[in-house]
Design a protein around this nucleic acid. Sequence first.
RNA 1: GUGGACGUAGCUCAACGGCAGAGCUCUCGGUUGUGGUCCGAGCGGUUGUGGGUUCGAAUCCCAUCGUCCACCCCA
Length: 426
Amino acid sequence: MGRSLQKPRGTQDILPSEQRYWFWVEDTWREIMLAAGFGRIITPTFEDTDLFVRGVGETTDIVSKEIYSFKDRSGNAIALRPEGTAGVVRSYIENGMHKEPQPVKLYYFGSMFRYDRPQAGRYREFYQAGVELLGELDPIVDAQIIAIVMKFYAKLGLKDLTVQINSIGDAKSRPKIHRALIDFLSAHRRSLCEDCKRRMAKNPLRVLDCKEKSCQSVVDEAGGVVLDNLNTESKNYFTKVLEYLDDMGVEYELNPRLVRGLDYYTHTVFEVMTKTGGLSVGAGGRYDGLVKLLGGPDTPAVGFAVGVERTIELVKTQGVNVPEPMRPNVFVVQLGDEAKKKAILVIDQLDKAGYQVAHALGRGSIKSQLRVADRLGTNLAVIIGEREVHSKSVIIRDLTDGAQESIIDRDMLRTVQRKLKERKNR
RNA sequence: GUGGACGUAGCUCAACGGCAGAGCUCUCGGUUGUGGUCCGAGCGGUUGUGGGUUCGAAUCCCAUCGUCCACCCCA
């Protein structure tokens, strides 16, 4: 056994046997996104640390406690991306996408990094499938993004999901909300837990998602305080979003306590979770200030990110019928040196005819080769021994019932074709 | 970052101070050139790592790395 080589904490090897789930999520995501007119974007896995400090927020846990940052060999401060939005926005600005017709619709799929204590569904390198729509401020696009991601989860075959939604107001209403919230919380300071007292000073909005039992009654009311203090514009905007969702037939749950851990959110925030158990599988919201904050023109935007590992976990626990991996449809068995040479030609012939051909040329006995064929789930075998070399023929064996016949070489392809067709029709 | 549980064969686990085992997987066999089921054999471990206690440690103690769980936070 190897001694000390093991993967770094919180990382994962995603092995071939797992890939059917990853393909399922990735392919479904791509199909939904392309159909909805989003274009794929690939941005760097690492960026200047400053991008995340400014974009995500210096005081957020993600940046202050969880970021992977280091100096590269030139002494530049570099960070592995902890989320996808900041990089996409940077790219939007840097590539002049604000000069293109708006909105600009982008999607991505990639790994993110957070230095956090690993737990179920939580890794230090994890994958997110994300979508961003930049350059349009209209409640209908918020609703559309929500509709699209719900369509994605539905197409995956997931049940029992709901989207919770809330508004935390635009930038202009933020100071008023903060003040009102702090006033309210101060008045109930005695009944708050220690964490909440700390959060109150740092980021009062975060008090809202405190799970401490003793805080519940206060926090429930605090959610109302936020909504009551939205300015008219924000209130109207939120109302419209909900109306559009109703019109589109998208079910949602209002959650006045829903807030997000990243500083850049404004207006609508939402999170997709299981109805039973409240496992979060994705989250998003509007971020109208971020493009400007990162040095671009004042540009509204809205986005969402799917937690891929958690989504796959749900796909498994819900027993979703995921497409099976492709099986080879014909297996070539060889016996003896001459036969091996002929097998190479036969394999090439079948391959060119478009079949998925499998073989085990490194094995000697028919027995072990057929075992491999069986394990691969192949239904048809072409067997070539010395006898077949001399008689210019092959044996074609149906592995489902064991029936086999000797076929002269020039009829090989036609017979394979016929046999596979018969199988399909059965 | 805090608290707790746990690391034995590729996988799932047993042995709980006295010879490190089973099932599954894998490899090879079960006469002339034929898979799945069945039968047999074989491969595979300095018991995560490093110390300590002991005549003797997988077993007890300490450290360390890792996994899981609950916090924190989040996807």
